[in-house]
Design a protein around this nucleic acid. Structure first.
Lengths: 142, 142
DNA sequence: GTTGACTCCGTAGCTGACTACAGGGTCAAC
DNA sequence: GTTGACCCTGTAGTCAGCTACGGAGTCAAC
């Protein structure tokens, strides 16, 4: 998929993605986004793919990935050879599944709480800490 | 649940929770962990509940929550009145569900990739960016 | 009762992830 | 063909979240 209609300036890209121009440059330095070729005596242009890439970076960040980890994810996106890639993908898969499992437990506790709050008054428990207690022991709920 | 056997020094707590002593003090200043009463001319002691609380903070951080957001979660844990609490819990629930949804899409793409890499050789696609494309449009896969 | 490890408190420094200039070049609309 | 908005490069500053350090006090084992 090449660049179709790369017509955005860096400022336009920033507005479209909801980030600052300086953030885009910073990401380029960090290797999260490539710098398009600059025409001699001209300025660089960006396309829709760049907007989506930035949006992905921001989304992944809010899921608890560091920029270095996001570089890894983008390496997979950009296509690497199966040999190395599937090892990396396996590791990322593991960490994603782990995050999902922990979030699911938090979700359970929160939705229980909201439901019980609707049903009764006063105080209801919200055992978030217990929900993530190390062992993933689903027995033991005294 | 009161403090049963609060026998840890701050150093012991730090070791047990896998954080630095300074981090604990920092969290106390930020309101994530309370400072136990210091006996006159003595030192503070901590218990198992503190270990679990620290572990929860670290876990929540890796799920993309800021310390301020974790303070909110801990407010729910510590018990507030239903009126205010359920509004807050509802907001948190929303953001947790959103995170889970995005992570589930990433999981799908990664596990597909790993599976296809096992089945064939060469390069396989890994459309992570597309998986989070805004609209949650599950049609349109050109 | 001394000593070595540790606590307490305050303040300063570091890292990751931006964010803000400054000074010069480019573009497009008049 | 000028002007105002914007781009480019580089470097410095900011903010969240720690991390390190200094000097005085506390504890427990000898």
């Amino acid at each position: 998929m090449p660049n179709k209609m790369n017509s955005l300036t860096i400022g336009g890209l920033a507005r479209a993605a909801g980030v600052h121009v300086e953030t885009i440059r910073y990401y380029q330095r960090r290797g999260l986004l490539s710098e398009p070729q600059r025409p001699p005596g001209g300025i660089r242009r960006y396309g829709v793919a760049d907007i989506e890439r930035l949006t992905f970076v921001k989304s992944a960040q809010s899921l608890g990935f560091s920029l270095d980890e996001i570089v890894d994810l983008l390496r997979l996106e950009d296509g690497a050879h199966c040999q190395e890639a599937s090892v990396l993908a396996g590791q990322k898969l593991q960490s994603v599944q782990d995050k999902i499992a922990r979030l699911a437990r938090i979700e359970q506790v929160l939705s229980d709480m909201v439901a019980r709050c609707q049903a009764q008054q006063g105080n209801v428990a919200c055992p978030l800490i217990a929900s993530l207690r190390t062992g993933i022991s689903e027995a033991a709920q005294t």
